[in-house]
């Protein structure tokens, strides 16, 4: 089952990297910006985790991980910043929301980050295998190396924070399911957006002519007043 998922993911990545990114640089840059935003969000979640932990040793581990994730975000951003009008390609800021509340044990948040790291590393490996862009490959190689070591690090903190192995196992499964569900929602939203775009196009081009006369008269009146 897992290998089937992996195969589907690989084919999807191959399709995007070899067709969409090749023909649409804008789409490539938006994707890179999205990676940067995801890394930044991990940083933000970890900052929250930092303040939920009291043990200075664990805090120090989170601290170094925050630095690394922020470094990754910056690496992706640098790939965009070399282009003219780079800011046009950056994805808008999403509304932030902590994944877990103050009442939840902190290891659950770390478990979430652990799964996220693992998924990102797998996805980046696939992109690296398909991409012909040397800058991107260089950046990804560094990031994959870090992410892989984070996975081991995060795993050991989970146990040190006092979570039982069975609890961790259940939580990891729960998170995987949530992430699959979130991915499904995202994809559905994309399909829905296409429908919304079509509806808006119909409204714009059918009613627009009438409304535009009124709009023009309002603006002309304001321009000259």
């Amino acid at each position: 089952m897992t290998s089937l998922f992996n195969l589907i993911r690989y084919l999807k990545v191959k399709l995007v990297v070899n067709t969409l990114w090749r023909w649409s640089p804008k789409s490539y840059l938006r994707s890179i910006s999205l990676f940067s935003a995801t890394e930044s969000d991990t940083v933000w979640q970890l900052i929250h985790a930092f303040y939920m932990i009291e043990n200075p040793k664990h805090r120090a581990e989170i601290f170094t991980q925050i630095l690394e994730e922020d470094f990754h975000a910056k690496q992706f951003e640098d790939l965009i910043n070399i282009t003219e009008h780079a800011d046009n390609y950056k994805v808008p800021f999403e509304e932030k929301k902590f994944l877990y509340s103050k009442e939840d044990p902190v290891w659950k948040l770390l478990a979430y980050c652990y799964i996220g790291e693992k998924d990102a590393a797998d996805k980046f490996k696939d992109i690296m295998a398909c991409s012909h862009n040397p800058d991107l490959k260089r950046t990804l190689a560094k990031i994959i190396h870090d992410e892989t070591s984070h996975v081991g690090q995060a795993n050991s903190i989970l146990y040190e924070l006092g979570a039982k192995p069975s609890e961790i196992k259940i939580e990891l499964w729960r998170i995987r399911l949530i992430r699959k569900y979130e991915s499904l929602v995202r994809n559905t939203k994309r399909i829905f957006e296409v429908i919304v775009d079509a509806l808006l196009a119909i409204i714009y081009f059918t009613m627009g002519l009438l409304v535009s006369f009124k709009a023009k008269s309002i603006i002309l009146d304001r321009k000259n007043s």
């Binding site: 957006e193 196009a201 714009y204 409304v211 009124k214 709009a215 309002i218």
Partner: peptide, 21 residues
């Protein structure tokens, strides 16, 4: 926002679409 986006009709569809969403 609505008035501005209809002002440049029919060349403002992307403006209209993004803002209306």
């Amino acid at each position: 926002v609505l008035t501005s986006s209809f002002y440049s009709y029919p060349y403002s569809f992307s403006e209209f679409k993004n803002s209306m969403k």
